[in-house]
Computed example of a mutant assay.
Amino acid sequence: MSTHLLIDTHSHFDADEFTQDRAEAFARAQAVGVSMQIVPAVSFRGWETLRTVCNTYQGLYPAYGLHPMYLAEHQASHLTALTEWLHHESAIAVGECGLDYYVKGLDPAQQNYFFTAQLQIAVDQQLPVIIHARRAVETVIQQIRRFPRCRGVVHSFAGSEQQARQLLDLGFYLSFGGPITYPTAHKLRKLVQVLPLEGILLETDAPDQPLASHRGERNEPAYLLEVLTCIAELRQQSPAEIARITTRNTFELFGLTQ
Rank of each mutant, 00 (worst) to 15 (best):
F44L: 04
C54W: 09
L5F: 13
R28S: 11
C54A: 12
T9R: 08
E161V: 11
S11D: 11
Q209F: 01
A31Q: 11
T52C: 12
L127P: 14
V192W: 07
E241D: 14
I131Y: 04
F44H: 14
K104E: 10
T52A: 13
E220H: 11
A243L: 15
F44D: 07
A31Y: 02
G59Q: 06
G105S: 05
T181D: 07
I231H: 02
P68M: 03
E96M: 02
T116R: 15
E89S: 14
Q30H: 02
H155M: 07
S175A: 07
G178D: 02
R146I: 00
F176C: 03
G65H: 09
I180N: 03
A117H: 15
R45A: 13
Q258F: 09
V39A: 08
F115L: 07
I38T: 15
V227Q: 06
E73M: 03
W85E: 14
F13A: 09
P68A: 00
A27G: 00
V94L: 12
R189Q: 10
E161F: 09
D107F: 00
F254E: 13
Y113L: 15
I131G: 05
L86T: 10
P210F: 09
L106N: 02
I180H: 03
A25N: 14
F26E: 13
Q163S: 05
N55L: 10
L256P: 08
H214Y: 12
S35L: 11
R248E: 12
L60Y: 03
V94E: 07
P62Y: 09
I245S: 13
S156Y: 01
I231S: 04
E233D: 15
E96L: 01
V34S: 00
L50Q: 15
S11P: 04
Q75G: 02
I144V: 14
Y101K: 00
A232M: 01
G255V: 13
P210E: 08
P196D: 06
T116H: 04
L5S: 10
L82V: 09
P40F: 06
E17L: 15
T257A: 15
V32C: 10
